[in-house]
Computed example of a mutant assay.
Amino acid sequence: MLGDSKSFGSFSVDRLDTARDFYADTLGLRVAEEEGMDALFLKLAGDRDVLVYPKDDHVPATFTVLNFVVDDVERTVDDLVARGVTMERYEQFPQDDRGILRDHAGEGPPIAWFKDPAGNVLSVLQETPR
C-alpha cells in the first residue's frame, strides 16, 4: 500500500537555531528551511530528507536517530573530534581509544556514536565488503 510513497524520518530538538548550526556548520550537511515552517530539513545524500523540529518538552532519543555511512570511520571520527564533537562511550561495548566499536562478535561494521546538541544519538559507520 505505501511501498511507492515518498517518506522521510524526523526527530525533535530543544533549540532549532543550535541544531541548524550543528548540522550545517559542524557536520557540513545541507540544511533547508521552508517559509512558514518552524523546522529544518536535513538534505542527505541519496535525495533523502530528515525533518528536525523543535519541541518544548524535548527528551533526547535513547537510540540512534541518524546513521552516516562513511568511507573511513577513523578519519571521520578524527575530523568530528577536531570540530569539537565528543564521541560517546558505552560500557557494554569494547570501543577503542577513539570510541570506535570494531567487529563486535563478528557482526556489524566499525561504528562510533556521538550526540547532537539536543542529546540525540547519531553515528558514523564504515560499511565492510560482503
Rank of each mutant, 00 (worst) to 15 (best):
F8H: 13
P109I: 00
K55S: 07
E127L: 07
G84V: 13
R48A: 12
T128N: 02
A24E: 15
D17H: 08
Q126W: 01
M87A: 02
S5E: 05
F8A: 09
D47R: 15
E127S: 11
G3W: 13
L42S: 05
E88N: 06
D57F: 01
L51E: 02
E91K: 11
K6I: 07
E35Q: 11
P129S: 10
D38S: 13
A45E: 09
V124I: 13
K55G: 00
G3V: 06
M1D: 08
T86V: 12
A24D: 10
A112K: 09
D4S: 14
A82G: 10
V81I: 15
P129I: 01
D116W: 06
N120I: 08
S123Y: 03
S7F: 14
Y53C: 12
E74W: 00
R48L: 13
A118S: 15
G84L: 13
P117N: 06
A45H: 07
D79C: 12
G3P: 02
K6N: 04
G84S: 11
T62S: 15
W113N: 07
S10T: 08
L29Y: 01
S10C: 08
D14E: 08
G119V: 05
A82Q: 14
E91L: 11
D56K: 14
R15E: 10
G9T: 14
T26I: 15
S7H: 13
L125I: 02
R83C: 10
R102H: 14
R75D: 15
A24S: 15
L27M: 07
Y90C: 04
D38I: 06
G28R: 08
L125K: 11
D21I: 09
I100T: 05
V52S: 10
V13L: 06
Q95R: 02
D116G: 03
F11C: 02
V73S: 11
P109D: 09
R98P: 09
A39T: 14
L40R: 05
V31M: 02
V81S: 12
L101H: 01
I100F: 05
F93W: 08
P129R: 10
F114L: 09
W113R: 03
V50P: 01
V81P: 12
T18Y: 08
E107Y: 03
A32W: 00
L122W: 07
V121D: 01
E91H: 08
K43H: 04
S5Q: 10
G28D: 10
P54M: 05
L125P: 03
D79W: 02
